[in-house]
Amino acid sequence: MMTLSGAFFGVIRRDLSIALRHRGDLLNPLFFFLIVVTLVPLGISPEPARLAAMAPGMIWISALLATLLALDNLFRADFTDGSLVQLMLSPQPLWLLVLAKIIAHWLVTGLPVVLFSPLLGLMLSLPEAGFLPLLLGLILGTAVFSLLGAVGAALTVALHKGSVLLSLLVMPLYVPVLIFGTSAVQRAVDGVSYGGVMAMLAAASAFTLLVAPFAAAGALKVGING
């Protein structure tokens, strides 16, 4: 009954079914993403050429903020109702269960943002060449946002003012991903090859995937006693 893969997929399935029962919450980060991007032409200029120049950066920054918004609840809901302790008392390796929670979280927050991004690219007159690197980059990038963010979410899980603090902790760590992600789109728009940048982004996400679940598991053990 109690197997490693059973526990791993059990955690993912349970978190997904909870998310599906709160469908309204699921859409909130998406609307946030949409509204922020709508503010850009209102705040700067509706002129397509100027929008196109800002599009890669604006879409990436909005995606970053949208995933950040949802991050605080990664462990907090489970902490509040006590199921996090049950998860941590499982004899299965904690980092694996944490990874399962991160994956489920990414599927309901990061992935929708990725899928939504081409629409926002259209709204901000992103040139056609930029769409593919935007999608690819955001897939890798939002994964890093969720993985690194999990460490911060674990550290602040028991703190009342967690949400703002969490943003303070993790945003500086997002800098490289933001740089690689926007440059990949920019290079594609400029007609230069973006393979190298995308490779760097992929390397960064692979490295984060290796390290972050362990760090987040360690952080949880500390964080629940906050």
Partner: peptide
């Protein structure tokens, strides 16, 4: 989990413990 049923909650726990 309040949004899940008792059965679902126990089945989840049974995967972990």
């Amino acid at each position: 989990k309040l949004s899940l049923t008792p059965r679902e909650n126990l089945q989840w726990l049974a995967k972990l413990q």
